[in-house]
């Protein structure tokens, strides 16, 4: 009797284990959070040096069209103009999203609404598999197939925005497709039943009811694909030509933030303007990735509100 009383009043082994376990798991989580802050801190501290140590004007950096850090451009300003890369990154991102969207949504609708059986058995496993294909493989195929195709069809060297767009289109297609299919699947079954019961055809139901209800989810899928396209480095670097020139057509060599970064980091001396300028490009990448994240959150919140209404 007294033994039990006493045991209730002192800390049991379980309580000690619990405290240790909680601290242990919290430290794991804290470590991950710390890593994120370190990433931002390290990239920002290098990327900002361009402006604070080398006194490059931010506006000249963003709008300049000559990229040859360490030298003076034709306009008398240091040649640290990142516009060609910024434009390159945005162009291939937007183009690949524009091309991929109809294909992805069409396939997703087919998978979920027209032929769910074939969708589940063939299309879904195949798309999920392709999400996992390494980007260098896409780059290699781009080099072997897309670049020669573009060269023979449109002329030029074959390297450029167009080839980059093709490669990224195929690359983000599986991701956008499977996320769109998830969004369509999340539309409650009774939406369709109600519409069909009112005499609407299948297409009217898809177009007027299902697609509309799934808009937030599909937008998320597209933005997600764009984020992936914007951040993709090697596959793009292999087919875009890596010329730091403002692209004036789609088939001349161009460059993106990621391609110049991968090319350049190893060939510059840490702490030099050449190197700092590259870190400024990395910082833009980081900020864009944040922006994509914010957009996805915003869409998610909007979507939730619409559903509640």
């Amino acid at each position: 009797m007294d033994k039990i009383r006493a045991s209730l009043l002192k800390k049991s082994i379980a309580t000690k284990i619990e405290r240790r376990g909680k601290i242990l798991s919290l430290s794991c989580l804290a470590l991950i959070i710390l890593v994120v802050f370190l990433i931002f801190y390290f990239v920002a501290s290098r990327g900002l040096a361009t402006f604070f140590q080398n006194h490059i004007n931010l506006w000249h950096f963003l709008s300049g069209i000559q990229w040859n850090p360490g030298t003076i451009g034709t306009n008398g300003q240091p040649a640290v103009g990142a516009l060609p890369m910024i434009v390159g990154s945005f162009l291939i991102t937007i183009f690949s999203a524009i091309v991929a969207t109809p294909f992805a949504i069409g396939t997703a609708v087919f998978m979920t609404e027209i032929s769910p059986r074939r969708g589940a058995q063939i299309l879904r496993p195949v798309t999920e598999l392709l999400v996992g294909i390494p980007s260098v493989v896409y780059g290699f195929i781009g080099l072997q197939v897309v670049v020669p195709f573009v060269r023979n069809t449109f002329g030029g060297s074959g390297y450029g925005i167009l080839s980059g767009t093709f490669v990224l289109f195929v690359m983000i297609l599986p991701t956008v497709t499977s996320m769109s299919a998830d969004a369509l699947n999340a539309v409650p079954r009774y939406y369709r039943e109600a519409s069909l019961a009112l005499g609407a055809t299948r297409w009217q139901t898809i177009y007027k009811v299902v697609l509309r209800a799934a808009i937030p989810g599909m937008l998320t899928a597209i933005v997600f694909g764009m984020a992936r396209a914007f951040g993709e480095a090697l596959a793009v670097q292999m087919v875009i030509g890596n010329a730091t020139l403002l692209p004036h057509n789609l088939v001349s060599p161009a460059s993106t933030l990621t391609s110049i970064l991968t090319m350049g980091i190893g060939n510059t001396v840490m702490g030099s303007l050449q190197n700092n300028a590259l870190w400024s490009l990395a910082m833009i990448l980081l900020l864009m990735s944040l922006l994509f994240n914010l957009i996805i959150r915003y869409i998610g919140r909007k979507g939730k509100l619409n559903h509640e209404r």
């Binding site: 959070i33 994120v36 990433i39 990239v43 984020a227 480095a233 980081l286 944040l290």
Partner: peptide, 22 residues
């Protein structure tokens, strides 16, 4: 915390590589 982890998962892998380098 969840947002932070999501941000980490959406970072381009080249940025992760560059951070690793630094």
């Amino acid at each position: 915390i969840r947002t932070t982890i999501e941000i980490l998962s959406s970072l381009p892998s080249v940025v992760v590589g560059l951070f690793g380098y630094l």
